[in-house]
Write a protein that binds this DNA or RNA. Structure first.
Lengths: 184, 184
DNA sequence: GGAAGCATGTAAAGTGTTACATGATTTT
DNA sequence: AAAATCATGTAACACTTTACATGCTTCC
Protein backbone atom coordinates (compact mmCIF):
# COMPACT_ATOMS: atom_id res chain seq x y z
CA UNK A 1 0.00 0.00 0.00
CA UNK A 2 1.77 3.16 -1.14
CA UNK A 3 1.04 6.15 1.09
CA UNK A 4 -0.90 9.06 -0.36
CA UNK A 5 -1.62 12.58 0.85
CA UNK A 6 -4.50 11.37 3.03
CA UNK A 7 -2.11 8.97 4.77
CA UNK A 8 0.24 11.83 5.62
CA UNK A 9 -2.61 13.95 6.85
CA UNK A 10 -3.39 11.19 9.35
CA UNK A 11 0.25 10.58 10.28
CA UNK A 12 0.78 14.31 10.75
CA UNK A 13 -2.26 14.59 12.97
CA UNK A 14 -1.16 11.67 15.11
CA UNK A 15 2.32 13.18 15.52
CA UNK A 16 0.63 16.42 16.67
CA UNK A 17 -1.14 14.42 19.39
CA UNK A 18 -4.52 14.11 17.67
CA UNK A 19 -4.69 10.41 18.33
CA UNK A 20 -8.11 8.99 17.46
CA UNK A 21 -10.20 8.86 14.30
CA UNK A 22 -12.90 10.94 15.88
CA UNK A 23 -10.43 13.58 17.09
CA UNK A 24 -8.77 13.77 13.68
CA UNK A 25 -12.08 14.44 11.94
CA UNK A 26 -13.08 17.09 14.49
CA UNK A 27 -9.70 18.81 14.33
CA UNK A 28 -9.87 19.01 10.53
CA UNK A 29 -13.29 20.57 10.93
CA UNK A 30 -12.25 23.08 13.62
CA UNK A 31 -9.12 24.15 11.78
CA UNK A 32 -11.08 24.54 8.49
CA UNK A 33 -8.51 22.18 7.02
CA UNK A 34 -11.18 20.93 4.62
CA UNK A 35 -10.40 24.12 2.74
CA UNK A 36 -7.39 22.37 1.25
CA UNK A 37 -7.77 18.70 2.13
CA UNK A 38 -11.19 17.24 2.97
CA UNK A 39 -11.89 13.88 4.60
CA UNK A 40 -14.75 12.03 6.26
CA UNK A 41 -15.09 9.47 9.05
CA UNK A 42 -15.71 6.82 6.42
CA UNK A 43 -12.25 7.48 5.02
CA UNK A 44 -10.35 7.97 8.24
CA UNK A 45 -11.30 4.81 10.15
CA UNK A 46 -10.38 2.26 7.45
CA UNK A 47 -7.27 4.30 6.65
CA UNK A 48 -6.13 4.22 10.29
CA UNK A 49 -6.57 0.44 10.28
CA UNK A 50 -4.54 0.15 7.05
CA UNK A 51 -1.74 2.31 8.45
CA UNK A 52 -1.65 0.11 11.56
CA UNK A 53 -1.55 -3.09 9.49
CA UNK A 54 1.38 -1.73 7.48
CA UNK A 55 3.26 -0.79 10.63
CA UNK A 56 3.14 3.01 10.39
CA UNK A 57 0.91 3.36 13.45
CA UNK A 58 0.53 1.54 16.75
CA UNK A 59 -2.95 1.14 18.19
CA UNK A 60 -3.74 1.23 21.92
CA UNK A 61 -7.01 0.59 23.71
CA UNK A 62 -7.91 3.81 25.45
CA UNK A 63 -11.49 3.39 26.75
CA UNK A 64 -13.33 6.32 28.32
CA UNK A 65 -15.39 4.58 30.97
CA UNK A 66 -17.45 1.90 29.26
CA UNK A 67 -17.07 3.62 25.89
CA UNK A 68 -14.33 1.98 23.84
CA UNK A 69 -11.76 4.14 22.09
CA UNK A 70 -8.73 3.45 19.90
CA UNK A 71 -5.75 5.76 20.31
CA UNK A 72 -2.76 5.72 17.96
CA UNK A 73 0.90 6.70 18.09
CA UNK A 74 3.52 6.82 15.32
CA UNK A 75 5.92 3.88 14.98
CA UNK A 76 9.53 4.47 13.96
CA UNK A 77 8.49 3.58 10.40
CA UNK A 78 5.65 6.09 10.58
CA UNK A 79 7.96 8.87 11.81
CA UNK A 80 10.40 8.21 9.01
CA UNK A 81 7.71 8.12 6.32
CA UNK A 82 6.24 11.40 7.53
CA UNK A 83 9.64 13.12 7.64
CA UNK A 84 10.57 11.85 4.17
CA UNK A 85 7.30 13.24 2.81
CA UNK A 86 7.83 16.63 4.51
CA UNK A 87 11.32 16.87 3.01
CA UNK A 88 10.32 15.62 -0.45
CA UNK A 89 11.30 17.82 -3.39
CA UNK A 90 8.34 16.75 -5.53
CA UNK A 91 5.25 18.92 -5.34
CA UNK A 92 2.01 17.57 -6.86
CA UNK A 93 -0.16 20.17 -8.59
CA UNK A 94 -3.05 21.86 -6.80
CA UNK A 95 -6.46 20.39 -7.57
CA UNK A 96 -9.49 22.68 -7.44
CA UNK A 97 -13.11 21.91 -8.24
CA UNK A 98 -15.27 24.99 -8.15
CA UNK A 99 -18.69 24.71 -9.72
CA UNK A 100 -19.24 28.42 -9.02
CA UNK A 101 -16.29 29.53 -11.16
CA UNK A 102 -17.35 27.04 -13.82
CA UNK A 103 -20.71 28.73 -13.94
CA UNK A 104 -19.14 32.17 -14.16
CA UNK A 105 -16.96 30.90 -17.01
CA UNK A 106 -20.06 30.01 -19.04
CA UNK A 107 -22.11 33.05 -18.08
CA UNK A 108 -21.91 34.84 -21.45
CA UNK A 109 -25.53 33.97 -22.18
CA UNK A 110 -26.86 35.49 -18.96
CA UNK A 111 -28.35 38.97 -18.74
CA UNK A 112 -26.25 41.57 -16.86
CA UNK A 113 -28.71 41.37 -13.94
CA UNK A 114 -28.35 37.59 -13.74
CA UNK A 115 -24.56 37.84 -13.94
CA UNK A 116 -24.63 40.39 -11.13
CA UNK A 117 -26.69 37.99 -9.01
CA UNK A 118 -24.20 35.17 -9.66
CA UNK A 119 -21.24 37.42 -8.78
CA UNK A 120 -23.02 38.42 -5.58
CA UNK A 121 -23.45 34.79 -4.57
CA UNK A 122 -19.80 34.08 -5.31
CA UNK A 123 -18.70 37.05 -3.22
CA UNK A 124 -20.92 36.04 -0.31
CA UNK A 125 -19.56 32.50 -0.38
CA UNK A 126 -16.01 33.87 -0.11
CA UNK A 127 -17.00 36.25 2.68
CA UNK A 128 -18.51 33.36 4.64
CA UNK A 129 -15.33 31.30 4.19
CA UNK A 130 -13.23 34.27 5.34
CA UNK A 131 -15.35 34.64 8.48
CA UNK A 132 -14.87 30.97 9.34
CA UNK A 133 -11.11 31.21 9.05
CA UNK A 134 -11.07 34.37 11.15
CA UNK A 135 -13.10 32.67 13.87
CA UNK A 136 -10.58 29.84 14.03
CA UNK A 137 -7.67 32.27 14.05
CA UNK A 138 -9.20 34.20 16.95
CA UNK A 139 -9.93 31.04 18.95
CA UNK A 140 -6.30 30.02 18.49
CA UNK A 141 -4.86 33.37 19.47
CA UNK A 142 -6.95 33.27 22.65
CA UNK A 143 -5.65 29.88 23.79
CA UNK A 144 -1.96 29.22 24.36
CA UNK A 145 -2.02 26.45 21.76
CA UNK A 146 0.51 28.25 19.61
CA UNK A 147 3.32 26.09 20.98
CA UNK A 148 4.21 23.67 18.20
CA UNK A 149 1.29 24.67 15.96
CA UNK A 150 2.87 27.59 14.22
CA UNK A 151 2.47 26.06 10.74
CA UNK A 152 -1.22 25.26 11.11
CA UNK A 153 -1.89 28.84 12.18
CA UNK A 154 0.07 30.15 9.21
CA UNK A 155 -2.17 28.16 6.87
CA UNK A 156 -5.35 29.36 8.55
CA UNK A 157 -4.14 32.93 8.21
CA UNK A 158 -3.51 32.34 4.51
CA UNK A 159 -7.04 30.95 4.18
CA UNK A 160 -8.54 34.08 5.69
CA UNK A 161 -6.46 36.38 3.51
CA UNK A 162 -7.17 34.41 0.37
CA UNK A 163 -10.93 34.49 0.82
CA UNK A 164 -10.80 38.21 1.60
CA UNK A 165 -8.89 38.68 -1.66
CA UNK A 166 -11.42 36.58 -3.61
CA UNK A 167 -14.40 38.44 -2.10
CA UNK A 168 -12.83 41.76 -3.09
CA UNK A 169 -12.18 40.45 -6.59
CA UNK A 170 -15.80 39.45 -7.09
CA UNK A 171 -16.91 42.74 -5.56
CA UNK A 172 -14.82 44.69 -8.04
CA UNK A 173 -16.35 42.78 -10.96
CA UNK A 174 -19.79 43.59 -9.57
CA UNK A 175 -18.95 47.31 -9.43
CA UNK A 176 -17.65 47.34 -12.99
CA UNK A 177 -20.69 45.53 -14.33
CA UNK A 178 -23.00 47.81 -12.34
CA UNK A 179 -21.34 50.89 -13.79
CA UNK A 180 -21.73 49.52 -17.33
CA UNK A 181 -25.38 48.85 -16.63
CA UNK A 182 -25.96 52.34 -15.23
CA UNK A 183 -24.27 54.09 -18.15
CA UNK A 184 -26.32 52.34 -20.84
CA UNK B 1 -28.88 10.12 -14.78
CA UNK B 2 -28.83 13.41 -12.86
CA UNK B 3 -26.51 15.99 -14.41
CA UNK B 4 -23.42 17.04 -12.47
CA UNK B 5 -20.87 19.81 -12.89
CA UNK B 6 -18.92 17.80 -15.47
CA UNK B 7 -22.09 17.49 -17.54
CA UNK B 8 -22.52 21.25 -17.57
CA UNK B 9 -18.88 21.78 -18.47
CA UNK B 10 -19.51 19.66 -21.58
CA UNK B 11 -22.86 21.30 -22.39
CA UNK B 12 -21.31 24.74 -21.95
CA UNK B 13 -18.44 23.88 -24.25
CA UNK B 14 -20.76 22.53 -26.93
CA UNK B 15 -22.86 25.70 -26.77
CA UNK B 16 -19.67 27.72 -27.26
CA UNK B 17 -19.04 25.77 -30.45
CA UNK B 18 -16.44 23.34 -29.07
CA UNK B 19 -18.22 20.37 -30.57
CA UNK B 20 -16.11 17.20 -30.24
CA UNK B 21 -14.61 15.28 -27.33
CA UNK B 22 -11.13 15.93 -28.57
CA UNK B 23 -11.74 19.66 -29.00
CA UNK B 24 -13.29 19.92 -25.51
CA UNK B 25 -10.25 18.34 -23.90
CA UNK B 26 -7.84 20.56 -25.84
CA UNK B 27 -9.80 23.71 -25.07
CA UNK B 28 -9.82 22.92 -21.35
CA UNK B 29 -6.07 22.50 -21.61
CA UNK B 30 -5.45 25.71 -23.57
CA UNK B 31 -7.67 27.81 -21.34
CA UNK B 32 -6.03 26.35 -18.18
CA UNK B 33 -9.54 25.44 -17.14
CA UNK B 34 -8.10 22.47 -15.25
CA UNK B 35 -7.21 25.08 -12.66
CA UNK B 36 -10.78 24.92 -11.42
CA UNK B 37 -12.33 21.88 -13.13
CA UNK B 38 -10.15 19.08 -14.48
CA UNK B 39 -11.21 16.31 -16.87
CA UNK B 40 -9.65 13.66 -19.07
CA UNK B 41 -10.51 12.01 -22.40
CA UNK B 42 -11.57 8.90 -20.49
CA UNK B 43 -14.24 10.97 -18.76
CA UNK B 44 -15.39 13.10 -21.66
CA UNK B 45 -16.12 10.46 -24.29
CA UNK B 46 -18.43 8.25 -22.20
CA UNK B 47 -20.06 11.36 -20.77
CA UNK B 48 -20.80 12.72 -24.25
CA UNK B 49 -22.44 9.39 -25.12
CA UNK B 50 -24.53 9.49 -21.92
CA UNK B 51 -25.66 13.06 -22.62
CA UNK B 52 -26.67 12.00 -26.13
CA UNK B 53 -28.59 8.97 -24.84
CA UNK B 54 -30.46 11.17 -22.39
CA UNK B 55 -31.37 13.64 -25.13
CA UNK B 56 -29.28 16.63 -24.03
CA UNK B 57 -27.00 16.44 -27.07
CA UNK B 58 -27.42 15.49 -30.72
CA UNK B 59 -24.58 13.66 -32.44
CA UNK B 60 -23.62 14.15 -36.10
CA UNK B 61 -21.05 12.30 -38.17
CA UNK B 62 -18.46 14.86 -39.19
CA UNK B 63 -15.59 12.91 -40.78
CA UNK B 64 -12.40 14.70 -41.75
CA UNK B 65 -11.38 12.77 -44.86
CA UNK B 66 -11.16 9.10 -43.90
CA UNK B 67 -10.80 9.95 -40.22
CA UNK B 68 -14.12 9.58 -38.44
CA UNK B 69 -15.26 12.33 -36.07
CA UNK B 70 -18.36 12.88 -33.91
CA UNK B 71 -19.63 16.44 -33.60
CA UNK B 72 -22.34 17.47 -31.14
CA UNK B 73 -24.92 20.22 -30.81
CA UNK B 74 -27.26 21.07 -27.95
CA UNK B 75 -30.86 19.86 -28.13
CA UNK B 76 -33.69 22.00 -26.78
CA UNK B 77 -33.52 19.92 -23.59
CA UNK B 78 -29.78 20.54 -23.37
CA UNK B 79 -30.19 24.30 -23.78
CA UNK B 80 -32.79 24.39 -21.07
CA UNK B 81 -30.74 22.29 -18.64
CA UNK B 82 -27.69 24.50 -19.17
CA UNK B 83 -29.67 27.72 -18.66
CA UNK B 84 -31.36 26.37 -15.53
CA UNK B 85 -27.96 25.50 -14.10
CA UNK B 86 -26.52 28.93 -14.93
CA UNK B 87 -29.44 30.63 -13.21
CA UNK B 88 -29.47 28.30 -10.18
CA UNK B 89 -29.35 29.96 -6.77
CA UNK B 90 -27.54 27.03 -5.12
CA UNK B 91 -23.76 27.23 -5.00
CA UNK B 92 -21.84 24.08 -4.03
CA UNK B 93 -18.74 24.69 -1.90
CA UNK B 94 -15.28 24.96 -3.43
CA UNK B 95 -13.21 21.80 -3.23
CA UNK B 96 -9.43 22.13 -3.02
CA UNK B 97 -6.79 19.42 -2.65
CA UNK B 98 -3.34 20.84 -2.20
CA UNK B 99 -0.69 18.46 -0.98
CA UNK B 100 1.76 21.35 -0.86
CA UNK B 101 -0.27 23.34 1.67
CA UNK B 102 -0.87 20.13 3.62
CA UNK B 103 2.88 19.73 3.89
CA UNK B 104 3.32 23.33 4.98
CA UNK B 105 0.64 22.79 7.62
CA UNK B 106 2.68 19.96 9.19
CA UNK B 107 6.08 21.61 8.80
CA UNK B 108 6.63 22.42 12.49
CA UNK B 109 9.20 19.63 12.76
CA UNK B 110 11.33 20.91 9.88
CA UNK B 111 14.45 23.03 10.36
CA UNK B 112 14.15 26.69 9.26
CA UNK B 113 16.31 25.89 6.21
CA UNK B 114 14.05 23.04 5.19
CA UNK B 115 10.93 25.17 5.69
CA UNK B 116 12.51 27.87 3.52
CA UNK B 117 13.13 25.29 0.79
CA UNK B 118 9.49 24.15 0.96
CA UNK B 119 8.22 27.74 0.80
CA UNK B 120 10.46 28.36 -2.20
CA UNK B 121 8.99 25.37 -4.03
CA UNK B 122 5.47 26.55 -3.23
CA UNK B 123 6.24 30.03 -4.52
CA UNK B 124 7.78 28.68 -7.72
CA UNK B 125 4.76 26.49 -8.36
CA UNK B 126 2.48 29.54 -8.08
CA UNK B 127 4.75 31.57 -10.32
CA UNK B 128 4.64 28.86 -12.98
CA UNK B 129 0.82 28.73 -12.79
CA UNK B 130 0.68 32.53 -13.12
CA UNK B 131 2.88 32.43 -16.23
CA UNK B 132 0.60 29.85 -17.85
CA UNK B 133 -2.49 31.97 -17.27
CA UNK B 134 -0.73 35.06 -18.61
CA UNK B 135 0.27 33.19 -21.76
CA UNK B 136 -3.32 32.23 -22.39
CA UNK B 137 -4.53 35.77 -21.68
CA UNK B 138 -2.01 37.18 -24.16
CA UNK B 139 -2.92 34.65 -26.85
CA UNK B 140 -6.57 35.62 -26.42
CA UNK B 141 -5.96 39.37 -26.53
CA UNK B 142 -4.00 38.90 -29.76
CA UNK B 143 -6.79 37.02 -31.56
CA UNK B 144 -10.25 38.52 -31.98
CA UNK B 145 -11.82 35.63 -30.08
CA UNK B 146 -13.18 37.99 -27.43
CA UNK B 147 -16.60 37.97 -29.10
CA UNK B 148 -18.82 35.89 -26.85
CA UNK B 149 -15.98 34.64 -24.66
CA UNK B 150 -15.90 37.48 -22.20
CA UNK B 151 -16.59 35.24 -19.20
CA UNK B 152 -13.87 32.72 -19.99
CA UNK B 153 -11.35 35.55 -20.24
CA UNK B 154 -12.52 36.99 -16.95
CA UNK B 155 -11.80 33.64 -15.26
CA UNK B 156 -8.36 33.35 -16.83
CA UNK B 157 -7.54 36.84 -15.60
CA UNK B 158 -8.63 35.85 -12.11
CA UNK B 159 -6.38 32.78 -12.32
CA UNK B 160 -3.36 34.91 -13.20
CA UNK B 161 -4.08 37.40 -10.42
CA UNK B 162 -4.70 34.70 -7.83
CA UNK B 163 -1.43 32.90 -8.51
CA UNK B 164 0.45 36.20 -8.44
CA UNK B 165 -1.12 36.86 -5.04
CA UNK B 166 -0.21 33.39 -3.76
CA UNK B 167 3.38 33.67 -5.03
CA UNK B 168 3.73 37.00 -3.22
CA UNK B 169 2.28 35.49 -0.05
CA UNK B 170 4.79 32.63 -0.02
CA UNK B 171 7.56 35.10 -0.86
CA UNK B 172 6.65 37.24 2.12
CA UNK B 173 6.75 34.22 4.44
CA UNK B 174 10.18 33.38 3.05
CA UNK B 175 11.44 36.91 3.80
CA UNK B 176 10.12 36.81 7.35
CA UNK B 177 11.67 33.43 8.07
CA UNK B 178 14.95 34.52 6.49
CA UNK B 179 15.07 37.63 8.69
CA UNK B 180 14.45 35.51 11.79
CA UNK B 181 17.23 33.19 10.73
CA UNK B 182 19.66 36.06 10.12
CA UNK B 183 18.95 37.74 13.44
CA UNK B 184 19.62 34.64 15.54
C1' DG C 1 9.86 7.19 -43.03
C1' DG C 2 9.20 8.84 -38.41
C1' DA C 3 7.30 12.06 -35.11
C1' DA C 4 3.68 14.70 -33.63
C1' DG C 5 -0.90 15.53 -33.48
C1' DC C 6 -5.96 14.16 -34.44
C1' DA C 7 -9.62 11.20 -32.87
C1' DT C 8 -12.05 7.71 -30.04
C1' DG C 9 -12.54 4.76 -26.86
C1' DT C 10 -12.23 0.47 -22.93
C1' DA C 11 -10.75 -1.79 -18.53
C1' DA C 12 -9.15 -1.69 -14.14
C1' DA C 13 -7.83 0.48 -10.24
C1' DG C 14 -8.01 4.06 -6.99
C1' DT C 15 -10.32 7.49 -4.32
C1' DG C 16 -13.96 9.65 -2.08
C1' DT C 17 -18.91 10.47 -0.58
C1' DT C 18 -23.47 9.22 1.24
C1' DA C 19 -26.30 6.68 3.78
C1' DC C 20 -26.86 3.64 7.29
C1' DA C 21 -26.16 1.30 11.85
C1' DT C 22 -24.98 1.00 16.71
C1' DG C 23 -24.34 2.21 21.32
C1' DA C 24 -22.25 5.17 25.33
C1' DT C 25 -22.00 9.65 27.65
C1' DT C 26 -22.86 14.41 28.65
C1' DT C 27 -25.67 18.41 28.59
C1' DT C 28 -30.08 20.77 28.84
C1' DA D 1 -36.27 12.39 29.21
C1' DA D 2 -34.54 14.19 25.07
C1' DA D 3 -30.92 16.14 22.43
C1' DA D 4 -26.29 16.64 21.44
C1' DT D 5 -21.95 14.79 21.22
C1' DC D 6 -18.54 10.95 21.54
C1' DA D 7 -16.99 6.95 19.09
C1' DT D 8 -16.58 3.43 15.42
C1' DG D 9 -17.48 1.43 11.63
C1' DT D 10 -19.81 -0.97 6.90
C1' DA D 11 -21.95 -1.03 2.26
C1' DA D 12 -23.12 0.93 -1.81
C1' DC D 13 -22.40 4.21 -4.92
C1' DA D 14 -20.19 7.87 -7.62
C1' DC D 15 -16.44 9.75 -9.59
C1' DT D 16 -11.76 10.12 -11.42
C1' DT D 17 -7.32 8.58 -13.05
C1' DT D 18 -4.07 5.52 -15.33
C1' DA D 19 -2.92 2.52 -18.58
C1' DC D 20 -3.80 0.55 -22.69
C1' DA D 21 -5.42 0.07 -27.62
C1' DT D 22 -6.26 1.56 -32.33
C1' DG D 23 -5.84 3.94 -36.58
C1' DC D 24 -5.65 8.33 -39.56
C1' DT D 25 -3.22 12.63 -41.07
C1' DT D 26 0.14 16.20 -41.41
C1' DC D 27 4.62 18.02 -41.06
C1' DC D 28 9.63 17.55 -41.21
Amino acid sequence: MPLNASSFLILGMVRNGVNSGYAIRRTIENMRMEAFWATTFAQIYPHLADLENEGYLVRHDDPQGARPRSAYTLSQKGEEALDAWLRGTDLPPIEVRDEGLLRLGFSDNLSPEETLALLGRLRERSEAAEREFCEYNLSMAAGAVEQGYRAALMIARMGAEYYAWAAAWFGQLESELQRELDSS
